[in-house]
């Protein structure tokens, strides 16, 4: 249990990036009618940004 919790907490920024930031970015792009690069679907762009940002935060321990 403790082992699983430790890993979940370690990976939490990545989970947050993919699970929450990605749909937020997609919804914001759609709400603001912003074009996506390479005609990517907004959610795909959300996964790229949210995933990379979450990975950065997971590795470095900071979002900024």
């Amino acid at each position: 249990m403790q082992f699983a919790l430790t890993w979940v907490m370690k990976l939490l920024p990545l989970i947050f990036g993919l699970g929450f930031l990605a749909p937020v970015i997609a919804a914001a792009m759609q709400a603001l009618a912003l074009p996506t690069p390479f005609d990517l679907p907004p959610l795909s762009l959300g996964f790229v940004i949210g995933g990379l940002w979450g990975l950065f935060a997971t590795i470095t321990g900071r979002w900024l």
């Binding site: 989970i15 699970g19 929450f20 749909p23 937020v24 997609a26 919804a27 914001a28 709400a31």
Partner: peptide
Amino acid sequence: LIALAWSGYAL
């Protein structure tokens, strides 16, 4: 937050 976001209430 994740449940809300994937239910259409992300913003």
